[in-house]
C-alpha cells in the first residue's frame, strides 16, 4: 500500500470521526444531510457484500467494518436519537436522493467489469458514491451558519477523494496491469464535485471568516 492510499483512507476515517464527534458529543446534526448519509450506508452495504467471503487483509476487513458500522450509526442517530433527530434540518435537505439510486443501478448493470452479482453491485456502489455527496453540497448552500465541524467533515471527505486519485496515478506507474476505468472515471467525477466547495473553503480559511457557499 502506498502513502497516498494510506493518507486517503486516513482522511476518510477522520471525516467520519469528525462527524460522529459532532453528533455524539454536541448532540447535533445541524447542516448534515441525512440523504447523503443514507446513500453512503447503501454504498458500503453494496460494496462490502463480500466482506466475509473475499479476504484481502486485516487492515481491509477492519476498515470495511468501520465504514459500514459508522455509516449506519450516523443514519440511526439522525433518524432515531431523540435529541439529535430534532436538530436535523429536514426543510432544507430536499434533494431527491431516491432518484439517483436507480440510474446508478442501471449504470451498474450496463457498465461493469463482469456481469456477476458482486461485480454489478460493486460498479453500482462506485457510481452511487460518486454522486452521494450532492445532497450534502446542496444543503450546505442553503445553510446560513455552516459550523466548523460540518465544513471539516466535507473537507476531509473531499481530501480523501483527491488522495485516491494520486494513489491511482502512483499505482498505474508502479504496478503492471493496474487499470480500473470504472473507479477512475467515477472517482474523477466525484472529486470534481468538490471543486466549488474547496474553493470557498480555502478562501474562508485564508481570510479567517466563516464558510458560506453562494447559492
Amino acid at each position: 500500500m502506498n502513502l497516498f492510499r494510506l493518507a486517503g483512507d486516513m482522511t476518510h476515517l477522520v471525516s467520519v470521526v469528525v462527524l460522529l464527534l459532532k453528533i455524539h458529543t454536541i448532540k447535533s446534526c445541524a447542516g448534515v444531510s441525512l440523504k447523503t448519509q443514507e446513500l453512503y450506508a447503501l454504498v458500503f452495504a453494496a460494496r462490502y457484500l463480500d466482506l466475509f467471503v473475499h479476504f484481502v487483509s486485516l487492515y481491509n476487513t477492519v476498515m470495511k467494518l468501520v465504514f459500514l458500522a459508522s455509516s449506519f450509526t450516523i443514519v440511526w442517530y439522525m433518524r432515531r436519537h431523540k435529541i439529535v433527530r430534532r436538530t436535523y434540518d429536514k426543510e432544507h435537505d430536499t434533494f431527491r436522493h431516491h432518484f439517483i439510486v436507480l440510474p446508478c443501478l442501471v449504470l451498474g448493470l450496463l457498465l461493469n467489469e463482469k456481469f456477476t452479482f458482486r461485480e454489478v453491485m460493486w460498479a453500482f456502489s462506485i457510481y452511487l458514491e460518486a454522486v452521494a455527496i450532492l445532497p450534502q453540497l446542496v444543503l450546505l448552500q442553503r445553510t446560513r451558519n455552516i459550523d466548523n465541524l460540518t465544513a471539516q467533515y466535507v473537507f476531509f471527505l473531499g481530501a480523501y477523494r483527491v488522495l485516491y486519485i494520486f494513489n491511482w496515478i502512483y499505482r498505474y506507474f508502479t504496478e503492471p496491469h493496474f487499470v480500473h476505468w470504472i473507479s477512475w472515471i467515477a472517482g474523477i467525477v466525484q472529486t470534481l464535485l468538490y471543486g466549488d466547495f474547496f474553493y470557498y473553503y480555502i478562501l474562508s480559511w485564508k481570510n479567517n471568516v466563516k464558510l458560506e457557499l453562494p447559492a
Partner: peptide
C-alpha cells in the same frame, strides 16, 4: 483470479 479478487481498495 477473477476481477473481483483483485479489488483491494476501499
Amino acid at each position: 483470479k477473477d476481477a473481483f479478487e483483485k479489488k483491494d481498495e476501499l
